[in-house]
Simulated scan of single mutants.
Amino acid sequence: MEHLLNPRVKNIEISGIRKFYNMVANMEDMISLTIGQPDFGTPGHIKAAAKKAIDENFTVYTHNAGFMELREAASVYFNKKYGLDYRSEDEIIVTAGASEAIDVILRTILTEKSEVILPGPVYPGYEPVIQLCGARPVYADITKNGFKLTVDILKHYINDRTRCIILPYPSNPTGVTLSQEELRDIAELVRGKDIFILADEIYSELVFDQEHTSIAAYLREQTIVINGLSKSHSMTGWRIGFILAPSEISRHILKVHQYNVTCAASVSQQAALAALKDGYDDAIPMKEEYAKRRDYVYKRLSDLKFRVVKPDGAFYFFVQVPDGFGSSLEFCLDLVEKAKVAVVPGDAFSPLGEGYFRISFAYSMETLKTAMDRMEAYLQR
């Protein structure tokens, strides 16, 4: 019966990140630096709120957009954090993680044969959804621009079919982010055009050397913001994301969200309320630790003569493969076999990622030190 399936589904692939992670997961003595999974536990006050919700039977459907107290808390939180002004009643939707937010937004705004501009290399979760919508992903090559999608590059890719530009900053896989000036320039380029900006800001709380700025501060009317608690509060498994969008856009996204999941999990919503109201600074200790890990890994990679851009945020390095290897996959497989260290081949992040590999430093310092020692010994051999 497989021949009857939707050909668009048959033509998409499982994420290359997960493919490589699954391949090495059960190998003995393997150090895996593959997954962007915070190694911190969810803060205790958040877990306590979830337990209380269960005990008090807060285990039923909520409003499709999320229960009002949570949306009100989200409105306050994102205003205090980033100066964004979104109404709780009709401009904020609580989703089942940022992944569901990507899905329902793109299904709402895309039509057949429309185009979406993405910086390449980029997180692999966008392209399959774009293709399932019958639209076309267009990768803008940022490999020679410090991994930044700036106006000088972007303007060459915009045409009459462009419906959306995705700005995933801080970036997975590069850790790079955009400055206020760079965001303002993009806002001015796009202003008044029939183009949406999809600002995926899931790593906004993990910016090390500057304050995070959202392009929605400069182009609110055309911007849809995605954020969530997975990285900021170490809540990946709780599956809570947020969509912030003008009401005339949000009300249509809500319809797709409703038929997709009805609502985000009610217990997770109560946990999210505790995160937003009582955990305003929960990300700070994690960010400080990630910054130490970044600096350590950057020094080790630099000492080993790897070519790498120092990340501004998130918890990834995107590193050029050493000379002498035919592909990213070849290098990563060789590293697995000879050094017992697993990283992600760059082509998992679009064809423009070929020639690179991604390291996640969302692991303990001890794990990172061992991994770097093994990589050093590997290169010496």
Rank of each mutant, 00 (worst) to 15 (best):
E127K: 14
D141Y: 10
C133L: 06
P128M: 08
D141G: 02
K148M: 07
V151A: 12
I142E: 04
P128V: 06
I130K: 08
V151D: 08
F147E: 00
A140G: 03
T150V: 14
Y123R: 01
Y126M: 05
L149H: 00
N145K: 01
P124E: 14
P124L: 06
A140W: 01
A135I: 01
Q131R: 15
L132W: 03
P124C: 04
T143Y: 07
P124Q: 04
Y126T: 08
P137T: 01
N145A: 06
A140D: 00
T143A: 02
L149E: 00
P124K: 03
K144M: 13
K148H: 03
E127I: 10
K144W: 14
P128N: 03
A140H: 09
T150Y: 02
I130R: 07
Y123F: 15
T143L: 06
T150F: 07
N145Y: 02
I142M: 12
T150L: 11
D141I: 02
I142L: 09
Y126N: 04
R136Q: 13
L149Y: 01
E127R: 13
L149M: 00
F147W: 11
R136Y: 13
E127V: 15
T143W: 10
I142V: 13
Y123K: 15
C133K: 03
P128K: 04
E127M: 14
K144F: 15
V138D: 11
E127W: 14
I142S: 02
V122C: 08
I130V: 09
Y139D: 05
G134Y: 02
Q131H: 09
K144N: 11
G146Y: 01
N145L: 11
P128F: 05
Y139T: 04
